[in-house]
Amino acid sequence: MSTIEYSSWAVDLAEVGPVYPLQGWEVLMVILGVVFWLGWHVIQHRRETKELQQQVKDYSKQSASHNIEQY
């Protein structure tokens, strides 16, 4: 049993094609990948919005002045 369809390299390499696990499930793997990508954008956007709202709430001129002077 092998997840890549070969359990020995006693083969003619000219006849070997793909050697990754889960062959035949490529479309599902791509769907999972796209969900991961889009989900990342959603999570990042929500966190960034929350952080910026918090920063506006906690804003102080002294802090801003200190940071500006540091250039």
Partner: peptide, 12 residues
């Protein structure tokens, strides 16, 4: 395409 065998570990 992302589901093509060529876009992967393919000895050919």
């Amino acid at each position: 395409t992302p589901w093509s065998e060529n876009m992967s570990t393919h000895l050919g």
